[in-house]
């Protein structure tokens, strides 16, 4: 009924009649069945079309992206862990190599000290031997020299005394005297 009255009022739109206004005023608190039907129809079609062109692709894209993001995060976490492991291994290798090198150096040092000690001991021994030899030689030479000196002095004494005694005594007597002297010496 609102429609008929409004249709009548079409001609006088510029200046609405009181009648038309009353209809309009009553109208906006009324629930009209065609309006509801139209709303359902429009909403139904809209929901269907939007489901096809928007919600389905958008929501699935959102889901996919969420999955991808969480997958990527997992991947990153895994990579990080793997990297950490590699890093650890690398560190271990470095530590091992370091320890080995230190060991080698230590061994070399020990060997050097040992050989030095050996060489020193050897040198000391040789020196000792040489010293002993020298001492022995000196002793020998000393003894020889003493013997020499004794014989020389004896000879000298003999020849001297012979010369002296030649004038004073004969040979047998002088020999006795010498003999006595020698025994004293």
């Amino acid at each position: 009924m609102a429609e008929t009255s409004q249709e009548q009022a079409i001609g006088t739109i510029e200046q609405p009649t009181p009648y038309e206004n009353e209809e309009a005023q009553a109208g906006f608190l009324k629930v009209s069945a065609p309006m509801m039907g139209l709303t359902w129809l429009t909403f139904g079609i809209l929901a269907f079309v939007l489901y096809k062109i928007a919600w389905k692709p958008v929501l699935s894209a959102l889901d996919n992206r969420e999955k991808q993001i969480s997958a990527a995060l997992d991947e990153a976490e895994k990579t990080r862990e793997a990297y950490a492991e590699i890093e650890q291994q690398r560190q271990k290798l470095i530590d091992e190599a370091d320890a080995k090198a230190r060991e080698i150096v230590e061994q070399a040092r020990k060997a050097a000290i040992e050989s030095a000690q050996i060489i020193e001991a050897k040198a000391r021994d040789e020196a000792g031997i040489m010293l002993a030899n020298a001492e022995r030689e000196i002793t020998t030479a000393h003894a020889a020299a003493l013997a020499d000196l004794r014989r020389e002095s004896a000879d000298l004494a003999i020849s001297l005394s012979r010369k002296i005694l030649a004038d004073q005594i004969d040979e047998p007597r002088s020999r006795d005297i010498v003999k006595r002297i020698l025994e004293k010496v």
């Binding site: 409004q6 079409i10 739109i13 009181p18």
Partner: peptide, 29 residues
């Protein structure tokens, strides 16, 4: 009157230069 006619449903669409008449089942809303 103007306010209530404006917020109410109507069977014409007042565009700047012409007035579109709408069928009863459609209406402005």
């Amino acid at each position: 009157d103007y306010v209530f006619s404006h917020v109410s449903n109507s069977d014409h669409w007042a565009l700047p230069f012409f007035d579109v008449h709408l069928p009863g089942w459609l209406t402005l809303h």
